[in-house]
Amino acid sequence: MHISEGILSGPVLGAGAVLTMAGCAMGLRHLESDKIARTGIMSACFFVASLIHVPIGPSSVHLLFNGAVGLILGWAAFPALLVALILQAVFFQFGGITTLGINTFIMAFPAVIGYILFRALVRRRAGWALPAAFFTGAFSVFLSGVLAALALMFTEDKFINVAGLVIGAHVPVMLIEGIMTVFLVAFLKRVQPDMLPSEGPSSR
């Protein structure tokens, strides 16, 4: 889901950069100083998760982990994922420097949407929380695919074709990330429930 250099047009890259800057501003505003360590560790998890290749399906895909990052960090997912994507571009040649803005938006915006939609349910009892966790993980990957297709439709192909290709390839990732998020939420509910999102509007 990392878009390479030289694929997208200037306006798309510019729009991605502006949206990411706005998201990062929101994220940094909401980032309480005692949550810095948590944000860094989730950023490190995302940085490494992209190396986990899923050898299922016709294409080659990797884990994203953005749903779990969003659930734990809220708006702070924007700066956390931006840092991870910068390091991935530099160390692994994933994506690129000019596409950092749009790639961050593609990964972080669904993370925040997942957080906004499912945070209330995740705090409830397991009957609600675990399905909500699954949907957070799967939905974030799905929305990332839709956003990637939207960004690519201006230069590559029709939206429906690109979306079909990207989302189709990521179906196994959606399932894996949904299950991983269920385990993560079940684990945190038992040992560290205050890491899960609160009912309030601010990020944790």
Binding site: H2, R38, I41, A44, C45, V48, A49, H53, H62, V191
Partner: peptide, 19 residues
């Protein structure tokens, strides 16, 4: 605990290839 999760991810990642 967060460090443990990161560690598990890291050691599983070093055995596989990048995308």
């Amino acid at each position: 605990q967060c460090l443990c999760v990161a560690g598990i991810l890291f050691f599983s990642a070093t055995r596989v290839h990048a995308h």
